[in-house]
């Protein structure tokens, strides 16, 4: 990988800050006993706004990731070249890869493009979120359900990924379910879609309904479990080595690997669910 001069300076500053904060954390935070340190592991900071219970870190990180993606897309879209440079060819390869999968899976040629847009958006957002939650050292906020914050520590954990919150994953899975049925109605017509519920015989109706309802649950819990479990393991590992330098870099490999594979699996399953409704 090649860095420009500005990126190199920023990276060096980041590493220096990481080491300095790591030494401070090692001196201060490692005095707390293990049972005290892991007491708040399952808790989240929740704020009540107008009757809605909102998880602020998920909202902030989700908007942040969306902003990063918008900036990248804006920069890429500004100057397309006929002969692509490295960044452009990377993104072209990625898009072609997903587009070919979608083209093979979706029987209706009119719905290939909308499905591709959906799948690619899901893949970009989820993979970026998983990478940030799996490999980049960040901030850890310990808070309570009534909106109070106990403490904020820097560089003891990875960034809180939006996909490590079931709200995000279940939203995406339900979105895929609804969109697959809308596409089915558009492609096959309302009557054929209704007939699909009693497919072999009317006795199968309850089984078909349960099968449809089980899809978003397993779809979302798979992603949530992988990313949230990884986040908890990073936290425990970084306590065990006294919050210093090694843990996140060490776990980063697994975070990148698992995160990218789970993002890919989520995308592939979304395409498969949509195509199974269309055929």
């Amino acid at each position: 990988m090649k860095f420009s001069k500005r990126e190199k300076i920023l990276l060096i500053l980041f590493i220096i800050a990481y080491v300095v904060v790591g030494i401070i954390n090692m001196k201060e935070l490692s005095k707390t006993p293990m049972s005290e340190a892991f007491k708040n592991l399952g808790r989240r900071w929740i704020v009540n706004i107008g009757g809605f219970r909102i998880n602020p870190m998920t909202v902030i990180m989700g908007l942040f990731i969306a902003l990063i993606l918008i900036v990248i897309a804006y920069k890429m879209g500004r100057n397309f070249k006929l002969i692509p440079d490295r960044k452009q060819s990377f993104f072209e390869y990625l898009m072609e890869f997903v587009y070919e999968i979608v083209e093979e899976a979706i029987p209706d040629p009119k719905l290939v493009r909308p499905t591709f847009v959906l799948a690619m958006t899901l893949f970009l957002f989820i993979s970026l979120s998983n990478l940030i939650g799996g490999a980049v050292p960040g901030i850890n906020v310990v808070g309570y359900e009534d909106g109070t914050i106990e403490k904020i520590t820097l560089f003891t954990d990875t960034w809180p990924a939006p996909t490590a919150d079931l709200n995000t994953d279940l939203t995406y899975a339900l979105m895929v379910l609804v969109i697959s049925h809308v596409f089915a109605i558009k492609s096959k017509g309302f009557k054929t879609w209704l007939k699909g519920w009693i497919d072999p015989s009317p006795i199968m109706l309850p089984l078909n309904i349960i099968g449809e309802l089980a899809k978003p649950i397993s779809h979302s819990l798979r992603l949530f479990g992988n990313i949230a479990g990884g986040a908890i393991l990073v936290y425990i590992l970084s306590y065990l080595v006294k919050y210093f330098f090694l843990p996140i870099v060490f776990w980063g490999f697994f975070g990148i690997f698992v995160g990218l594979i789970q993002a890919f699996v989520f995308t592939i399953l979304a395409i498969a669910y949509i195509s199974s409704q269309l055929s």
Binding site: L41, G42, S218, L221, G225, G229, Q262, V265
Partner: peptide, 25 residues
Amino acid sequence: MLLADAVAETTGIYSLLIAFMILLT
């Protein structure tokens, strides 16, 4: 193979989550 691995892993991940829930919450 990696895709199939990720799908087969799901039940293990469920039990990991439930173990964490029992221990921590």
